[in-house]
Nucleic acid binder design. Structure first.
Length: 404
RNA sequence: GGAGGGAUUCCCGAGUUGGCCAAAGGGGGCAGACUGUAAAUCUGCUGGCGAUGCCUUCGGAGGUUCGAAUCCUCCUCCCUCCA
């Protein structure tokens, strides 16, 4: 794996990358690394602010994995202290502050999901609390004195907030310094991050320089857009594909992304070689590739990455069955009922398809409810449960009735 | 510390001469048609309740009134300007 030459390494690193700065320094570092047979220390800092990760979180991790596969040393920094502040990058308001306990509680699931991608045995994991918790206020002042307000206000997010008269918490100004300090503490050669991390990574270079270290090189990956194709992928917007989604769910969500997003997803989330991607692009442009089939390939690649090839194949078969052939899925959740009649709206609630009677009513009135393929028109329907009957809501929600 | 502005339903945002307000409009979401579970487009729905009515909602607590998102008092939070 470490036998790759400079050009091959560079190509692998730059695939799907948004920005490398400065690139000449990366080349220098790689050359030296090859000559001295000394792996580069590649840092990625993550703040365990959430418990369930999605594909957007995976993009930098996948790039870190690339470095790892090239024989470099992955350094994963768990930002137990930085998470308490919340990274202001790209934000139009301050993040909620978490307590250290909350952060530590998130850590376990975070790592678990991150190591679906990274090779745990070859990853150095460090908590930044291991140095921040020991700092004195005098140390903090020394750190703060390395930054000026003017520089902070060069940042678009802060500048916007400032100009729009939105609040900027002082603690938020500290964040980039902490992240930069992390780089110095682990003597990073390279720091990975999303495009929104550019400023923070540059601060890291400054701090390293001031502490007499060679500055790190920044490698920024693009921000993954969510399934709506407009906003960045995020849990709060609901446009995400979770790492913990099952194969069918993950496959289906991928199929539902806008076509324009396919290229980005292929590049950032799969290992399909660049040459092949080029062929897919021209095929789509010329109309020789059907977009749907290209997307199926994409969905397969993604599911295979997190659940294995076998699961990907099964997910595809089920998808084809349900949505292309219009048949019922093989595995449906079961709902056990007694044999006495039940009000249809009540049934929808029991099945979890509606959270209130009102919502159930609306689904029926909107024509979205079917029993064994028959549209339900009557809101007051009293239905006598039949064993094996299939209740369907919309195109993708099914449940099978089982009599007690 | 002083002066002023504001808090509305998932979000943004109307509504403040008290009733016609479960509250305009937009966004988002859900469902239907069309399709490739894509996009675009069109249509309907979008507080709760087995429900021609009842209940809860317009930052919080009280009050005025037959009746308050709208008026009064106090409180909380946020923003701006001056220091």
């Amino acid at each position: 794996m470490d036998s790759l030459n400079l050009e091959e390494q560079l190509a692998a690193i730059k695939r799907g990358v948004g920005d490398v700065f400065p690139e000449e320094e990366l080349v220098e570092k790689l050359k030296r690394s090859l000559a001295e047979k000394r792996p580069l220390r590649v840092k990625l800092g993550v703040d365990p602010t959430a418990t369930d990760l999605h594909l957007g979180h995976m993009v930098p991790l996948l790039k870190l994995k690339t470095f790892q596969d090239l024989g470099h040393q992955a350094v994963l920094i768990i930002g137990d202290y930085t998470a308490m502040l919340g990274d202001p990058s790209g934000r139009n308001k301050a993040r909620p502050q978490l307590t250290h306990d909350q952060v530590m509680a998130n850590c376990r699931t975070y790592e678990e999901q991150a190591f679906k991608i990274l090779d745990r045995s070859r990853t150095e994991v460090v908590f930044n609390g291991s140095w921040f918790s020991k700092m004195h206020f005098t140390d903090v002042i020394a750190l703060l004195s390395r930054m000026t307000l003017a520089r902070m206000l060069e940042r678009e997010d802060f500048a916007n907030r400032y100009n729009n008269e939105l609040p900027i918490g002082l603690h938020e100004l500290v964040y980039p310094l902490m992240q930069g300090y992390d780089s110095a503490m682990v003597r990073a050669d390279v720091e990975m991050g999303g495009m929104d991390q550019k400023f923070n990574i540059l601060v890291g270079r400054d701090i390293q320089r001031e502490l007499g270290q060679e500055p790190q090189v920044g490698v920024c990956v693009p921000i993954l857009l969510g399934t709506d194709g407009v906003e960045k992928m995020s849990k709060s917007l609901g446009n995400y594909i979770a790492i913990q989604d099952g194969p069918s769910e993950m496959y289906g969500k991928t199929m539902s992304i806008p076509d324009e997003l396919m290229d980005m997803y292929f590049e950032l989330l799969t290992e399909v070689p660049g040459r092949e991607l080029e062929e897919i692009r021209t095929g789509l442009a010329k109309g020789t590739h059907h977009p749907r089939n290209v997307k199926r390939r994409l969905a397969r690649e993604i599911v295979a990455r997190f659940h294995g090839p076998e699961a990907a194949k099964e997910a595809e078969e089920e998808f084809d069955l349900v949505f292309i052939k219009g048949e019922l899925p093989e595995d449906m959740p079961k709902l056990s009922l007694g044999s006495e009649s039940i009000w249809i709206v009540e049934l929808l609630r029991l099945a979890g398809f509606a959270s209130s009677n009102g919502e159930g009513r609306r689904l029926i009135q909107g024509g979205g409810v079917r029993i064994d393929g028959q549209q339900v028109a009557d809101v007051d329907l009293e239905w006598i449960p039949e064993d094996g009957a299939v209740i369907q809501v919309g195109k993708r929600r099914f449940i099978k009735v089982a009599l007690k």
